[in-house]
């Protein structure tokens, strides 16, 4: 009788052990002993046919394709900034060159864009004309004087911020626009950063976190 009892207890425990020991590794089909990222290398997806695209969320007409900056890099889409700028082309007002403007200024007359405060590097490094073309106000220009359109300001920013540009080209920097589905649409640099004051500003959070608002 005693032996029977002991055997019985063992049997119960073994059954319990077998039933409970292995975790659920077969759900969903993406599991196994390898890490998810490791597995991703071996998963080949035959087709990605979505019934939706980012064009459902954003107007295709208001997007422009970026220039190919690196060999083989994806040429994704960014918002058409020039179409959004309120007083573009700039030459509507600034019809004269910068020198002519400066020369013809009456004493006490306010400078154009006097309200713009530049908080972007030191003045020894940057000033207005580092980015803006003093000869053609409708354009930006690179450090070597090559013209850059306002839509493609990333070419300008990337001269200094090359690591950020690399992340942006890949997809780690820059807000996604219009969802997650292809084709890729991202914010351009100036979509989030004010070029004259690129750092994000301090402000109060939109709400309290886990505490009740009184």
């Amino acid at each position: 009788m005693k032996q029977l009892a002991v055997l019985g207890i063992l049997a119960v425990l073994i059954v319990l052990g077998v039933k409970c020991a292995p975790g659920q590794h077969d759900e969903g089909g993406h599991n196994g002993s390898h890490h998810l990222l490791e597995q991703l290398k071996y998963i080949s997806v035959d087709s990605l046919n979505y019934e939706f695209s980012r064009f459902d969320q954003v107007d295709k007409e208001k997007l422009v394709q970026i220039h190919q900056l690196v060999e083989g890099a994806e040429q994704f889409l960014i918002p058409d900034r020039m179409a959004e700028m309120k007083s573009y082309p700039c030459s509507n007002c600034h019809s004269k060159s910068l020198e002519a403007l400066q020369a013809g200024k009456a004493p006490g007359e306010k400078k154009s864009h006097w309200d713009i405060e530049i908080v972007h590097a030191k003045t020894v490094t940057m000033q207005c004309t580092t980015c803006h073309d003093p000869k053609n106000f409708n354009l930006l220009h690179s450090l070597t004087g090559a013209p850059i359109e306002f839509n493609h300001s990333y070419e300008l920013c990337g001269q200094c911020h090359s690591t950020q540009q690399k992340d942006w080209l890949g997809g780690a920097h820059g807000k996604q626009v219009g969802g997650w589905a292809p084709p890729r649409v991202s914010q351009t640099c100036t979509g989030c950063h004010n070029p004259h004051k690129p750092a994000f500003e301090k402000r109060l959070p939109a709400r309290l976190n886990t505490e009740w608002l009184k």
């Binding site: 029977l4 009892a5 019985g8 207890i9 119960v12 425990l13 319990l16 409970c20």
Partner: peptide, 21 residues
């Protein structure tokens, strides 16, 4: 009676596994 004895161990082990797992 025999079953109930094993079962008794079982209910408490299972309840412990509820947390221990």
């Amino acid at each position: 009676v025999l079953i109930s004895v094993f079962w008794a161990v079982g209910i408490h082990m299972v309840t412990a596994f509820l947390y221990a797992g």
